[in-house]
Design a protein around this nucleic acid. Structure first.
Lengths: 295, 295
DNA sequence: GCAATCAATCGCTATTGGAGATTAATTAAT
DNA sequence: ATTAATTAATCTCCAATAGCGATTGATTGC
């Protein structure tokens, strides 16, 4: 059993087609067919059901799919570990929430880039759900996400604590005015945004019935919509400061227990910890401010 | 980078010799040399320092060694996962303490063998230290060991709780008589036995100075020695029952907090959980008796 | 009925992995 | 000092095979 065969398997499974997998892998279809057949014979199971319009992954194939992802990651880790003599270098791919990126990451990234110029740092943004999925499936090294998180394969540590505030248009002076608004809309990033369910439960707790939430892709768009009175949203206090001072929006603080959200840095428990990761964590950890809880 | 090359690397590293690695792998030395050189070129580092009397693993090699072990395990898991359709089969290699095996495992094993005849169950015995090492390095699926255990790569659950008792010859009627014995010897299994340090700390707590412990390989030998008055030992209460009733030895109960020891079943957190493992855990778990704590 | 798309198959070739013999370097023993 | 033994490196040769290109057969959609 060869790892390259498993990589081919993964590509075929993802595309549902040997032809498309072949072109992705820069090879020919006959080759893909042969490798898959060899793999199937070696394992003694059918990995795909052949249809006239492609293939679909059998339960056997489904079972090994996550293992293949980990296998390729581990193989990459071998390469990294071999060259990693303690001086951080190579590339480091982390994820972050849109809000965390805007509010907290900038100083961290500049300092990291200055201290470790040999590391190619890549940051992708996404929702907590997507980022967790990326970490679990070894697509990124780690990510800043909104807590709490429970997953057996992940380890986490709290790096920031945000105070969430309800953001509305200037017309709304007190929170309980929201009850009087018919057809109140909530504005969130996109599906999987962890602030969204928080906002929903908060509003339901206040007796406010909310309509279907609107989704936007950027912070600026959200704030604009809120400012225009289209709906309300929930954001970290620090991030709405400028817009607040400009008088574009109104900010309503929440009771302590509902307003606190922890930003965690999560990564796979079994991932190889390169020097670059160590260095990044060192910088990201809250310095001399209480005791951060790691698990 | 090929996994087979990494396997060769592991063998060379273990033997400190390409010749010996070659004969273990049923190939020729020239082949091993070529594969190692190819691997080194691929990774861009020297994995071995060549001496006139063999090779020694460089720091780079040391770093990738544990990853290689996990890689081969993962590759084996792929094979297992592909064939594992839910009906437990294949082989299952677990470890157990000598005492746990004698005291608790027999009914579990017979029931498992009866219920799942398609599983080749293999049990090796050893000390807690050795078993943990075996589990961590993927040599066995899981093991029954004495708690507490803290290791980031392991997950554990309590399956039994043993009451440890101090076992002495019949001459000793009360525990404090031990103080009067000059040159008291302790008798334990072997280095790494977890009961050993417990026994040491217990006796030191009683003000008893102990000599160098004697080590034996079997339960029967230990009990014989204790019976003959050569020394004292610490064993689960259940296991000394027969010898106690025969009047060969004396049993002294310990205070609650010092006498309780938990037998945990540990396994790698990132290991593939086959149907066989699931079935085994199902049988091993304490049934309807309090809430076992899993982590 | 024709074009398009899919996987399977066949023959060919370049690559490569492994075997065997040899070499060079060093150590241990005589 | 010489010899024997052990080590890894190197070379050649051969067989296995991975990948390519072209083709076939089956199926779907227009």
């Amino acid at each position: 059993m060869d790892v390259s065969d498993l990589v081919i398997f993964e590509a075929v499974s993802r595309h549902g087609s040997m032809n498309r997998a072949a072109s992705e892998l820069n090879t020919v279809q006959s080759n893909v067919t042969a490798r898959i057949r060899a793999l199937e014979e070696d394992l003694g199971v059918n990995l795909f059901q052949r249809h006239p319009r492609g293939v679909s992954t059998t339960p056997s194939g489904q079972r090994i799919l996550p293992l293949v992802a980990r296998l390729t990651k581990l193989l990459a880790d071998v390469r990294i570990a071999a060259r990693d003599d303690g001086a951080p270098h190579g590339s480091l791919h982390v994820g972050s929430l849109e809000t965390t990126t805007a509010l907290r990451l900038s100083p961290l990234l500049t300092q990291f880039a200055k201290t470790y110029p040999d590391v190619r740092l890549i940051v992708s943004t996404g929702t907590t759900r997507k980022l967790l999925d990326d970490v679990i499936n070894c697509r990124i090294e780690g990510a800043f996400v909104a807590g709490p998180v429970t997953h057996p394969d992940l380890c986490q540590e709290t790096v920031f604590t945000e105070e969430l505030v309800l953001v509305t248009s200037r017309q709304i002076r007190r929170m309980d005015e929201l009850k009087d608004i018919a057809d109140l809309k909530t504005i969130v990033f996109q599906a999987g945004c962890s602030y969204r369910q928080r906002l929903d439960s908060l509003l339901t707790g206040m007796g406010v019935i909310t309509a279907r939430p609107l989704e936007f892709g950027s912070l600026e768009a959200i704030i604009s919509c809120v400012s225009a009175g289209i709906g309300v949203t929930l954001l970290p206090k620090g991030i709405v400061g400028p817009a607040w001072q400009d008088g574009r929006i109104a900010v309503h603080e929440l009771p302590q227990d509902e307003g606190q959200v922890e930003t965690l840095f999560v990564r796979r428990r079994d991932a190889f910890v390169s020097s670059a990761v160590t260095a990044f964590l060192q910088l990201a950890r809250p310095r001399a401010s209480g005791a951060p809880h790691a698990s």
